[in-house]
């Protein structure tokens, strides 16, 4: 295993060869905003929040799927990136129906946190007001697609950790939405094991425990990482 050295925001750091920029930065205590990234499952580079600048390339790269290279010069927080990220968060808000004040995840929401982190004071884009479905047919969980940002965390945890592959995507572009089984009500799903990993993975208030009230939804993300460590490294650290 060889070690690479690179600079992130003019700081020299070292990283293992197979690491991504995101992992290397994290090890060095450098924060890069993420949204679709979730520890324990594969990276998809879909949300573009972790975009970074790499010297010598005009193209921005998602830190979660870009491997470190010897001598790489990475910038994670340039004005251009800040602008980009703010726009991405605005787009996420404009695309869905996010009403924070009456949302189950109010106060515990990664989208809300990102709005604060990126300094988003308002949405410059037109709201789409999409017509989206709420499904609370499952006896333990519910999904409100108005609050879904299509990060696919639920799809990945269900497929990669639980192995059930209950969740999937349907539709195209802004009309995409997550489905259970073949777009059947969640409560009628024959593949769902009711393990709740998707609920723990969801960054917003889209997936929730049935019966939670406004602002009450809290998640245990560490559970997912714990499971993967246990499975792959046979370590049951608590």
């Amino acid at each position: 295993m060889s070690v690479k050295t690179l600079t992130v925001n003019d700081r020299f750091i070292s990283a293992r060869e197979e690491e991504t920029i995101l992992e290397a930065a994290k090890d060095a205590g450098i924060h890069i905003p993420t949204l679709c990234y979730l520890e324990g499952v594969s990276e998809v580079g879909a949300c573009r929040l972790c975009l970074v600048e790499i010297a010598g390339s005009n193209k921005l790269q998602p830190a979660c799927v870009t491997k470190v290279v010897e001598g790489m010069e990475v910038s994670t927080n340039t004005p251009r990136l800040q602008q980009y990220r703010r726009t991405i968060v605005e787009m996420l808000f404009a695309e869905g129906n996010h009403i924070c004040s009456v949302c189950v995840a109010n106060g515990n929401c990664e989208l809300q946190d990102l709005a604060i982190e990126t300094g988003m004071t308002h949405v410059r884009l037109e709201y789409h007001f999409p017509d989206r479905q709420v499904d609370v047919s499952h006896d333990r969980f519910g999904i409100d697609r108005n609050r879904c940002i299509l990060c696919t965390r639920c799809v990945r945890v269900c497929d990669e950790i639980e192995g059930a592959h209950t969740w999937d995507m349907a539709g195209r572009g802004t009309n995409s939405y997550v489905i259970t089984d073949l777009d059947r009500p969640w409560g009628t799903s024959s593949t769902c094991t009711s393990c709740g990993k998707c609920v723990n993975a969801c960054p917003t208030g889209a997936l929730f425990y049935r019966g939670v009230s406004v602002g009450e939804m809290k998640r245990d993300r560490a559970k997912l990482d714990f499971l993967m460590t246990a499975r792959e490294k046979k370590q049951w650290n608590v």
Partner: peptide
Amino acid sequence: DRLSCVAQNGMT
């Protein structure tokens, strides 16, 4: 709880 563009610009 949506703000119109006018209100949003006003907020900034």
